[in-house]
Amino acid sequence: MIDQAAWLLAGADALLICAGAGMGVDSGLPDFRGDSGFWEAYPPYARLGLKFVELADPAHFADDPALAWGFYGHRLHLYRDTVPHEGFQLLKRWGAEQRVYTSNVDGQFQRAGFADVAEVHGSIHHLQCVEPCTDDIWECALDVEVDPESMRAVGELPSCRNCGGLARPNILMFGDWSWVPDRSQAQLDDLTAWRRTKKNLVVVEIGAGNAVPTVRRQAELASASSGALIRINPREPDVRHGRGVALPMGALEALVTLARRTA
Rank of each mutant, 00 (worst) to 15 (best):
V146Q: 02
G113H: 05
R217P: 01
G37E: 02
S103M: 05
R99P: 07
I230L: 11
R152P: 01
W39A: 04
V53R: 14
T102L: 11
A186Y: 00
F114T: 10
T134V: 07
R47E: 15
A228D: 14
N233I: 09
I137N: 02
E86W: 00
T102F: 07
I171A: 12
S103N: 07
K198D: 04
L201G: 05
D13W: 02
A112W: 03
Y101N: 07
R260V: 09
Y79L: 11
G37C: 06
E220F: 00
A96Y: 03
P43M: 03
G122S: 05
A66I: 01
F61I: 10
G165V: 09
W39C: 01
S123D: 11
P158W: 01
G250V: 05
G250T: 08
R75E: 09
V154F: 00
R93Q: 15
G73R: 08
N210M: 15
P43I: 06
N233E: 07
F114I: 12
A118M: 11
S226H: 03
C129E: 04
E86L: 14
L255A: 04
F61A: 15
L229P: 09
P58H: 06
R93K: 14
D106C: 10
V256P: 00
D176A: 12
A263W: 00
G209E: 11
L247N: 04
T102V: 10
S150A: 12
G164M: 09
N162H: 11
R261H: 02
P181L: 09
R217C: 05
E149Q: 07
D13Y: 02
P181D: 06
D190C: 10
V105L: 13
R261L: 01
H77N: 12
R99D: 12
D135R: 13
W179G: 07
V204Q: 04
N210I: 15
S223I: 07
V146G: 03
A12M: 03
S159M: 08
P237K: 03
A66G: 01
I206R: 08
N210P: 02
S223F: 05
F71P: 05
A193M: 02
